[in-house]
Nucleic acid binder design. Structure first.
Lengths: 205, 205
DNA sequence: ATCCAATGTCACCGCATGGTGACTTTGTCA
DNA sequence: TGACAAAGTCACCATGCGGTGACATTGGAT
C-alpha cells in the first residue's frame, strides 16, 4: 500500500493547512472539526489528539502564517526613506500599503470578517497575532509631529477602518453596489487617501 | 383554554417580529427555521405555509421595518437648512447623522454584517431595501459643486465605509482593541469627519 | 522475532438542523 | 347541526454537527 508513512508532524501540518483552505474557500462559517478533517483527508479525531480540539488547531494555524501586514509591508523596503517623508505621506503610503496587502488576501479578509462577526475562543486565537505594530508606527509618527495638530493615530484608524470595510465589501459586490472589483476603483481610493492625508495633515491651521 | 384566537395575520406578524428578535439577539448565524419558530412560539411549518420558506419570511421582515436611514435621518428635520449649508458641512453632517443612526441599532448592524459575510437568497432579501438614497443625495451635492473639484461621492463612500466598520467593530470590542464603546470616542470620530470634509472640500486647490 | 506505544481508522452517540406528511382543532357558512 | 376549509400541532425523516470509545496498523526498541 502506497500510504503515507506515519508522520505526526506532517499530519499536523496537513491539518493546519486545511484550516486555511476551508477558511479561504468557504469562509469561517464552514470551519469545523468535520470539514477541516475532511479537507485534510484525515480523521477528525486527530484534531482532538494533536491539538486538543479545534481551538488549538486554529491557534496553531494563526501562528503558522502571516495574515497581517508586518512592519516591512507597511513601510516598504526602505525604512529610512519611509521615515524621511513628511508625516502625511508616511500615513498615506502606510495606509495604501495596508490596503494593497489585504485586499487580495482571501485569508486575511476572512479573518477580519470572522473577528467582526463573533467573539469566541476561535476568534480569540487570532487576537494576539495582530501585533500592535500599526499603533506603534502611529506613535512613532506622532512623535515627529507638533503636539497641537490633528491626531495622526485617529486619522489612521478612521481611514484604516474604511480600507478594511471596502476590502470586505468587495467580496460580495452584489450585496454592496460597489465597483471595487475593478482595480481601477482602488486607485481612486488610494488617491482619495492621499488627498485626505495631505489636506488634513499639512494644510494650514 | 385561553389560547389565542386563530388569526393568520397575527401569527405572521409574530413570526416576522421573531426574525428581528433572533437577529438582534443572536446574530444572523442563528437565524433559521427552527430558531425563529421557537422564538415565535409557533410551529415552523407555518413559515413554509405562510411565507414559502425562510427566504420569504426574511423578505417580509426586510420590508416590515426601517433599518437604513431615510432621507430625513440623514438631512435632519429641516431639509432647507441642510441644503443651504456649504457642501463640506452637508457631507459631514450627513455622515455624522448616518453614524448616529446605525451605531446603536443592533438590527441594522446585524444586517450590515450579514451582507458583508455571505451572498445568498437571504441577504438578497435586504438588498432592495437599501435605497439609493445616499447616492442620490451625493448627486444632489455634486451638482452644487464645481466640476473639477474632489469627488464628493467618493469621499462620502470612503468615510461611510469607515463609519460602518467602526460601528461593526464596536460590537466585539475585545477583538478589535477599540474604545468606541465609550460614546466620547464617537465624538472624536465625528470631529475627525468634520475636519476631513472641511479640509478636503473647501481648502484651496 | 516480539512487544508496545504511537499513529491512524471506524463506528457510534446525542443533538440540532431544514423539511414534510398526517393529524387535530377551530371558525364559518349553509 | 353538519360540513369543510383554514389554522395550528405533532411526529418523523435525512443530514450534518461536535465528540468519544474501540479497533487496526505501523515502526522501533529490546
Amino acid at each position: 500500500m502506497g500510504t503515507r508513512p506515519r508522520d505526526k508532524e506532517a499530519t499536523k501540518a496537513i491539518l493546519v493547512e486545511a484550516v486555511g483552505k476551508v477558511l479561504a474557500r468557504d469562509g469561517f462559517l464552514r470551519v469545523g472539526v468535520n470539514s477541516v478533517a475532511r479537507e485534510a483527508g484525515v480523521d477528525k479525531v486527530l484534531i482532538y489528539r494533536y491539538f486538543g480540539g479545534l481551538t488549538g488547531l486554529v491557534r496553531e494555524f494563526s501562528d503558522s502564517r502571516k495574515f497581517w501586514p508586518g512592519m516591512e509591508d507597511i513601510v516598504g523596503p526602505d525604512p529610512q526613506a519611509f521615515l524621511a517623508q513628511p508625516i502625511h505621506e508616511m500615513l498615506s503610503t502606510g495606509l495604501i500599503n495596508y490596503a494593497r496587502f489585504i485586499r487580495n488576501k482571501p485569508l486575511s479578509l476572512a479573518i477580519i470578517a470572522w473577528m467582526l462577526m463573533e467573539s469566541n475562543e476561535l476568534t480569540r486565537a487570532f487576537q494576539d497575532t495582530r501585533s500592535g505594530m500599526f499603533s506603534g508606527l502611529m506613535d512613532k509618527a506622532r512623535s515627529s509631529q507638533g503636539p497641537s495638530e490633528i491626531d495622526v493615530g485617529s486619522l489612521g484608524n478612521l481611514l484604516g477602518a474604511a480600507v478594511a470595510f471596502l476590502a470586505l465589501s468587495m467580496r460580495f459586490p452584489e450585496n454592496y453596489h460597489n465597483e471595487l472589483v475593478d482595480p481601477k476603483a482602488w486607485t481612486d481610493v488610494e488617491n482619495m487617501i492621499r488627498v485626505i492625508c495631505s489636506k488634513v495633515l499639512c494644510d494650514g491651521s
